[in-house]
Amino acid sequence: MKLELNGKEYFTGQDITVQRLIDELELDLKSTAVAVNKAIVPKSSYPAFVLNENDKIDLVTIAPGG
């Protein structure tokens, strides 16, 4: 299925959860936060949160700033 990941198209399996997406991308859980369709997903919901076709996912972390 197609997702929009950080503004770009991303293809992955059906019914993937946020947790599995993070695992698939090999992201560090401690330094990653997730929003789906601009709604923040709490960390405790990752394993149960199933993504849908065309969902807009924002995966964020820290970046340089003042």
């Binding site: 950080n6 503004g7 991308l25 992201l27 560090d28 330094s31 990653t32 936060a33 924002d58 995966l59 964020v60 972390t61 820290i62 970046a63 340089p64 700033g65 003042g66």
Partner: peptide, 29 residues
């Protein structure tokens, strides 16, 4: 202070690996 931004999948370097979290408190802006 640090910003909160989308992960850059093309970036090879990770800011976090240069910050000792035991030494500093990170302040999100």
């Amino acid at each position: 202070t640090v910003a909160v931004r989308r992960i850059d999948f093309n970036s090879k370097e990770n800011l976090l690996s240069y910050i000792d979290l035991d030494k500093y408190i990170l302040l999100p802006n």
